[in-house]
């Protein structure tokens, strides 16, 4: 059985109570929060992470055909909390990162599954919504493309651009390794930055191994290692100098006594 897929979206009326919220059920923990400053949550972004509850995936910026009453396009966000038992589904979701068509298709399927009136009614509390996570999970299979082949996932942290085939395949390999508990940390796309420096900052902030797929890279797209950031300067443990001082003092005393003894002897 597929893990429940929590669905966040908004209703069409402009009142605050129709604003973005999980409908039907809310994920028990916001494990993706730590990474939100490194992605653009209103754009197409995918985050995979190992967390206390398993290996989750966060998919945001999925477009809906719906518009709110002011004409603003509405988006979906999906959260699947634990896909350790379904690494292939995890790979297929992660591959959405470089498929604008796949994103569109996912949005269309969600629109078909949950029509605008029903979402408004659910948010108003006029319709039951317990089945939303299960229905969302069930429709995923038809919305996603088949799994792509995996590549070599360099150990540790790295960053690559979406245009690079090796980087894409390595990204899929990393999410698979996360699901199999062979890797720790995060794998995520980012439109919030496009440079190696930005990737370094994200890795330093998250303090865990990261595999970052830049969706709009500045410059080269090939995989680059993110060396562990310069931490606080290492303070060398200073060995106590007391024994040295005591030793030298004793030597000095001995020397003085020796000089005094020699002078007295010679007198």
């Amino acid at each position: 059985m597929t893990a429940p897929a929590y669905l966040m979206t908004r209703g069409r009326p402009r009142e605050n109570r129709y604003d973005y919220q999980f409908i039907g059920a809310v994920p028990p923990a916001r494990w993706w929060d730590a990474v939100t400053k490194h992605v653009q949550t209103t754009q197409r972004e995918i985050v995979v992470a190992r967390h206390e509850g398993g290996v989750g995936v966060y998919v945001t910026g999925v477009p809906s055909e719906r518009r709110d009453a002011g004409g603003t396009p509405i988006r979906y966000t999906l959260v699947l909390d634990d896909l350790r038992d379904d690494p292939v589904l995890l790979q297929r979701i992660a591959a959405l990162a470089w498929s604008a068509d796949g994103y569109e298709r996912l949005g269309e399927q969600l629109d078909k599954e949950f029509d605008a009136d029903r979402i408004d009614a659910i948010i108003r509390g006029d319709e039951p919504a317990e089945d939303v996570p299960a229905r969302t999970a069930a429709m995923l299979d038809s919305a996603l493309e088949p799994a792509a082949s995996l590549g070599d996932d360099p150990a540790g942290s790295w960053v690559g651009g979406v245009k690079d085939r090796d980087a894409r395949r390595a990204f899929l390999a990393r999410v698979t390794r996360l699901a199999a508990a062979e890797a720790e940390g995060w794998a995520f796309t980012s439109q919030a930055f496009g440079t190696l420096r930005g990737a370094h900052e994200a890795a330093a902030d998250l303090r865990a191994p990261v595999a970052i797929m830049l969706l709009d890279p500045d410059g080269t797209s090939s995989i680059q290692e993110i060396a562990p950031g310069k931490g606080p300067a290492l303070v060398k443990e200073r060995r106590s100098r007391i024994p040295l001082i005591v030793g030298l003092s004793l030597a000095a005393v001995a020397l003085i006594l020796a000089i005094v003894w020699i002078m007295r002897s010679s007198a």
Binding site: T36, T41, T42, G71, T72, P73
Partner: peptide, 14 residues
């Protein structure tokens, strides 16, 4: 032109 059609902010940003 629709001044309200821009994507709204979903999270805090500094």
């Amino acid at each position: 032109f629709n001044a309200y059609a821009l994507a709204g902010t979903q999270d805090e940003a500094y």
